[in-house]
Each structure stands twice: as structure tokens, then as C-alpha cells.
């Protein structure tokens, strides 16, 4: 069997690593195994070995201190969708799903600031569909405000028209957009 890393020399060392999905096993030659331990070799191609970086530099220290006093969540918040805890996230350095971002929203700016030269907010491309949805949501909110005013002023006919409008917009929001019901 050839070394999985260099694919040149025969594999002589089995290199086991704990990941989120359990233990991974890599068969390496002496040389690659030596480097993998010395320089925290990581099989992915990120410019930085993020796992090591997060786990050793951020993890365990200041980022978790806030949570440690909280006995109900010894591992920090837990993502309801994929089950990842904040503690585990710092360990493996990867999110499990999009909901993780919501779950760890309060903690993330500090993580991002360290990774991205102090930046914590996105400043680039926005998907068109997201903009459209955003515009529709805004429109829906406006209609509702007007509708409320109409109801309060007892202009019920106007309110009924507005309600129909709101329903149309709501249908356009393909994802249901909002969990509030229109009257």
C-alpha cells in the first residue's frame, strides 16, 4: 500500500485522527507521518489548518469562559438542526449546517474577527433571490403597518383590500417567509 499523502513511498504508519464523524485512519509513510505530527498536517487544502488554529488558540480560553459558569450548557449553545455544540465547533473548526450560524450568532463575531483581520460583517455579493425576498418581506411589513392603521381608524374596507394584497405578497414568498399570520 502506498502512502496516502505522497503516493510515492510505501505506507508504514497508521495515522488516526478524531473528527466529527468518528475516527479517520490515514496510511502514511515515515516521512509524511513525521511531517504530519510536526506541522499538524491536515488533509484539506485550507491555507491555514483551521482546526488546530481554532482549537488551540481560541478554544478553552476566553471564548468559552462565558459559558462555563452556565451549568445547563457546559458545552455552550447546541445547534438544534445538526446537534453541534459551540465547544465541539471550536474543536473541529467546522460548522455542521447553516443553522449553526444562528445558534452561535452571539459568539461568532469574536471568532470571525480573529480569522478575518478584525472583520465580522459580510461586504460582498448578495444573491439576487435573497434581495428579492428581502424586498418582498419589506413590502409585506409595510402593508401590515398600513392595515393596522386602517383597522384602528375603523376603515375596514381599506383593511380588507390591504389584507388581500398582503396575501398575494405572502404567496410570492416561496419559502413562506414569515411565520406570522395575516390577520
Amino acid at each position: 500500500m502506498l502512502c496516502e499523502n505522497c503516493k510515492e513511498r510505501p505506507a508504514t504508519v497508521v495515522f488516526k485522527q478524531e473528527t466529527m464523524n468518528g475516527t479517520t485512519e490515514r496510511h502514511l509513510c515515515d516521512k509524511c507521518a513525521f511531517y504530519s505530527q510536526t506541522f499538524s498536517f491536515s488533509p484539506d487544502q485550507e491555507p491555514l489548518s483551521i482546526q488546530q488554529f481554532l482549537a488551540h488558540w481560541l478554544g478553552g480560553s476566553e471564548l468559552l469562559q462565558g459559558q462555563k459558569s452556565n451549568e445547563t450548557f457546559p458545552d455552550g449553545p447546541k445547534c438544534p438542526s445538526c446537534g453541534l455544540t459551540f465547544h465541539r465547533f471550536l474543536d473541529i473548526g467546522k460548522f455542521g449546517c447553516a443553522t449553526c450560524y444562528d445558534t452561535f450568532r452571539e459568539q461568532l463575531p469574536r471568532v470571525f474577527a480573529k480569522l478575518h483581520n478584525g472583520n465580522t460583517n459580510h461586504g460582498g455579493k448578495v444573491p439576487v433571490s435573497f434581495n428579492e425576498r428581502f424586498a418582498l418581506k419589506k413590502q409585506l411589513e409595510d402593508i401590515r403597518t398600513k392595515m393596522k392603521e386602517a383597522v384602528e381608524a375603523e376603515r375596514f374596507e381599506e383593511a380588507a383590500i390591504l389584507r388581500d394584497e398582503a396575501n398575494t405578497v405572502k404567496q410570492q414568498l416561496a419559502d413562506g417567509g414569515d411565520d406570522q399570520h395575516v390577520i
Binding site: P47, L108, H122, G124
Partner: peptide
């Protein structure tokens, strides 16, 4: 998935 890619 990796926080080093978040954003753009």
C-alpha cells in the same frame, strides 16, 4: 462549513 471561508 469552514469559518475561514464565510462571507464571500
Amino acid at each position: 462549513s469552514c469559518p475561514s471561508n464565510t462571507g464571500t
